[in-house]
Design a protein around this nucleic acid. Structure first.
Length: 227
DNA sequence: CTGTGATCATAT
DNA sequence: ATATGATCACAG
């Protein structure tokens, strides 16, 4: 998809563009940007997010930084059930497995991305045709002190394991708010990491994901604030 | 090849 | 039913 809009230069401008899509179906928004609606998301997993990028003027690209670096905002779509519960965990960024310098939370990409997020809830039930799914009301979120502490604790615990060569003993069961799971094109992809004895090894690339319980709490906050 | 956007699909 | 591990498309 092509970039058709300039990056928003202020929060107000971003929210204006965001509010303009609230209540629309994905088909309606897709028509506005002249993109085809896929029959399902099996082969287009990132389609919804990329449509949002068009609407909001996010700079495309694969940089490990927030979508709107000028205004320090990260964009996240959140697929939700009929009961307004998250249907999926939320991918944040890849886990650095090598060249780990200072284990500094505030320098981490996780912190840089999550310190301010524009959440866009979208109906995600698979039985709803993609084009018929309704876009919810986007809202801006900043983690509370408590949420920030949870994220930081998980991040520090997990990164310590990585730095000490224990990447292969990390599973999705670690971490309360944040966890680590594979993030690759397939199971044969290998990248460099630190082995148990400190020597280089090859392992599957991993990503940081937000647990559903964490994003559920974010939704609850936003919902309560509206009422 | 690595990062982005994520959801899929099967084991449990 | 759902969480974990696996996977898909595309940009740079």
């Amino acid at each position: 998809m092509k970039k058709a809009l300039s990056s928003p230069t202020s929060i107000d401008q971003l929210m204006e563009r965001a509010d303009a899509m609230a209540g629309l179906t994905l088909a309606e928004l897709a028509k506005r940007w002249q993109v085809q609606v896929p029959p399902d998301l099996r082969r287009d997993k990132g389609w919804v997010g990329q449509l949002m990028e068009l609407q909001l003027g996010a700079s495309a690209g694969n940089k490990a930084e927030p979508d709107f670096p000028e205004i320090d905002v990260e964009l996240k779509t959140l697929p939700i059930s009929y009961a307004l519960a998250p249907l999926e965990t939320t991918y944040v960024t890849v886990v650095p497995l090598t060249n780990i310098r200072a284990l500094n939370w505030f320098d981490s990409v996780v912190y840089q991305k999550l310190k301010r997020v524009l959440w866009v809830p979208v109906q995600g039930e698979r039985e709803i045709p993609v084009g018929d799914r309704i876009i919810g009301t986007p809202f801006l979120w900043q983690p509370s002190q408590q949420q920030l502490q949870m994220l930081r604790n998980d991040w520090e615990e997990l990164m310590e394991m990585v730095a000490l060569g224990n990447i292969n003993s990390i599973s999705a069961k670690f971490g309360d708010a944040l966890h680590i799971r594979p993030k690759a094109a397939n199971g044969r992809v290998l990248t460099d990491a630190i082995g148990e004895d400190g020597s280089p090894i090859k392992t599957l690339p991993r990503g940081f994901y937000l647990q559903k319980s964490f994003t559920q709490a974010i939704l609850n906050q936003a919902f309560a604030n509206d009422a």
